[in-house]
Amino acid sequence: MIPILTHLPFAAVFDEIPLGWFLTLSLVMFTLGAVGVVVRRNPVVVFMCIELMLNAVNLTFLAFAAYPTQMVALSNPGEAAITGQMVVIFVMAIAAAEVAVGLGIIMAIFRLRNEADVDDMNTMRG
C-alpha cells in the first residue's frame, strides 16, 4: 500500500468508502437532472437541471480518477488520475460559457415575450 494523501483531511476515505457509493450518488443526481429537464417548464429551471447533470458527470470523473481499476493502477496511475481531473476543470470552464450564452438566450426571449415557458414555445408546428 502506497502512502495515501496524508495531507488530506479525509485520509482514510479510499479504504473505507467504496467507489460504488460515489457512483451511485452521481447516477442519482444525473437521473434526477434528466427527469427535471423533461418535466420542468421554466427554461431557467430546465437549465439548472442540466447543470445538475453536468455536476453529476464531474463527480463521476473525479470518483474514477481516485479509484482507478487494477490494471490502470498498475500501468500508469498518475496519468490516468490526472486525466479525470483535467476533464473536470474543462467541463467547469465550458459550463461557464454555456451559462453565459444560455442565460443570454433566455433573457432575449423573455424580452420578446415577457414570459418564458418551454411548453408555450409553439410558434412553429408541423
Binding site: 479510499f14 467507489l19 479509484y67
Partner: peptide, 8 residues
C-alpha cells in the same frame, strides 16, 4: 461496490 484500495 467493492473497489476501494487505490494507489496514489
Amino acid at each position: 461496490m467493492e473497489r476501494t484500495n487505490v494507489q496514489f
